[in-house]
Design a protein around this nucleic acid. Structure first.
Lengths: 202, 202, 202, 202
DNA sequence: AAATAAACGAGACGGTACGTCTGGTCTTGAA
DNA sequence: TTCAAGACCAGACGTACCGTCTCGTTTATTT
């Protein structure tokens, strides 16, 4: 096994490959995405892809990471003090992304990879999903300090309560994803996380 | 296009194919599952598969359905009056299934199909997931009548609140799936669905 | 190793492959002949070639054999009693073939294979060259009976004396191949094979 | 196209390349000889080979030429007055060379190149084969002066009569190459070239 | 019981893409 | 500036499967 020397790597080819991968997956879908087509579209030899990535999934993950890293730390949640409004903005934005056909296709491709290849799953959850969950936890922590979120709650579970229902509905296409749905989920989640005592009806 | 006559279908071949598909997907994973291998393992001609199923995904869905239909309507939720205990049993059982390597592998395969092929997605959500969601809604409705669940709540959202976090954690492997986790999710969900008023802290 | 069943073999594909191989080797030469191009030209999948032949050289040998077997036993030498005239016809015909660009190209390809692959060398010498040498030996044997060729001469060497110089000149392109050359070779060979005694000059 | 400056050429690299080429062709055969392997074995960049030679065949030809030029004009035929003995020595020596596995392999490689590439063919026949044919013609000319070879005979054909049968048998592997065979060929050739008249049996 | 027609096992077919290998060109750093 | 090292584009290699298409051979009605 010969490990190539990264210092000699052609940045131009790398960009061309990542762009071609994103374009093609949006055009033909993940199942019909081929390394051969990526190479052809990028004007690159197949070996140049195989030299640097182990699979088409890895190329795609890199492509998506390159995308999100271009936007440079845009993954910051607002903190206006109004936790309901702040989270509503995030959830609605996520719904909008899932409803964008291009993002939908690419994200489904990532989801397939995540299900299939544990290595890529680690990368995807660590570098794409992870940061979002972290900033959300930060926002919820601020909510705890402000008395809007119960002290004892496990924030790891809390963020799943917010995002998982939307993800579930998107993956399984059980029902349409709308802003109203996002709002409903948010209301229930906030109630669940609320620090308030509950007056059980007797 | 010639539509074959189902009355002449060989039940023996059908069973052999479904079993071979389940065995193989557990052995080599979904990505490396091939129609050719299923046919060879089942001792069957490839055409016999293509005659009755449009894709390897469809075979797998049928195989899983055959499995669950063997267990014959087992998808009934208990109703002991204690909604917390009843749901806890279900959630823990789901966690156990996801933690079973064979079921894990097969279910991931179905999830991949669901993401990839809208037709199969419809079948999977309709015939595998759907019944579970329905009986859960029934149980929650009983909870509403018993005053344990708020009246106005959208039960479609309610069941997602219960199941989606577990699904999310399983798909993305963000954290281990345990009974404790299931219990935590249940507590939060029950609080969210609770009919009680909330005493906002002043 | 799976050995295919010859009874199911497609005669149509076989012919198309052999024809495509001959056409292509004449067009682009042996070094640039590829299995891929043969398959494409023949309208055939690559596997259909690899199923029945181990290499492009083997295809070519079969193609040439098919050619010569179409001409059906044409490899018979005349026996008019005039051994000089009979052999002159053969040698000139061989010179003409070597001077035909298409035959030249194909024969060079066979020669390269013969040099490179011992297996194909056996086939080529056995099935293409061998029969010619045999009928020539037969003719020389008749010459022996007629007293035109010495009794003791090794006919294996005798046929080489006739054909080798032409082959040598063709392979190495040392000088042009003409009828006159063929005639000169023939005269010398006949003198060498002559049963006559020699009057050494004193 | 950039023509490199020969004065700057590294003699050390040149020798290393030629030696590597000879070693490798003897080891793996001509078909599996690659420029990449030559470069690696010689401890040289591929470009250094492509800078000075157009193809692997050209390298090999140069390598063989370098070999024979080291032996410095060794290509001289003895002239003891006994033409039979002198030629017998040459023919037997050639047979011995063809029977040496290393020389066999390299010579087959040259033959393949000669068949494939007209440019290299010219070089090979001109610089390797040519000198041998010339000195042989010289020896035959001396034979003519001594009355051992007929005056009118075309010496170009005469040398082919001597060497072609051996070459033919070597290339095509039709029969084993032995000293006895060389002697038989020589006897027939000398008879053919003999100045004597022939007493046809009546 | 014989005839007939469909489904069956087997597997060859035209294809697509795989991941690897080599050819010949271009780029980078060290000497 | 030349070289070794090796990345690059290009494209053929031989393999694996795809989904379609015959082949005989069961198997199960129809006659």
């Amino acid at each position: 096994m010969k490990t190539p020397n990264p210092s000699r790597r052609s940045e131009q080819s790398r960009r061309a490959i990542l762009n071609a991968a994103l374009d093609l997956v949006a055009e033909v879908g993940y199942a019909k995405l081929t390394v051969e087509a990526i190479a052809a579209r990028a004007g690159v030899g197949k070996q140049t892809i195989y030299r640097w990535w182990p699979s088409k999934g890895a190329v795609l993950v890199d492509a998506v990471l390159a995308l999100s890293e271009d936007e440079e730390g845009a993954i910051a949640l607002p903190d206006t003090g109004d936790i309901r409004a702040d989270l509503r903005g995030v959830l609605r934005a996520i719904v909008d992304e899932y409803n964008d056909p291009k993002i939908d296709t690419i994200t489904r491709a990532l989801a397939v990879e995540s299900l299939t290849d544990p290595t890529l799953n680690t990368q995807i959850t660590g570098r794409v999903l992870g940061p979002l969950l972290e900033v959300t936890k930060d926002r919820l922590r601020a909510g705890q300090r402000a008395g809007q979120v119960a002290e004892g709650v496990d924030l790891g579970v809390a963020v799943e309560l917010l995002y998982a229902p939307i993800y579930h509905r998107w993956v399984l296409r059980t029902n349409p994803l709308t802003h109203e749905y996002a709002d409903t989920v948010l209301e229930l989640a906030l109630k669940a996380l609320s620090p308030a005592t509950i007056n059980t009806v007797e």
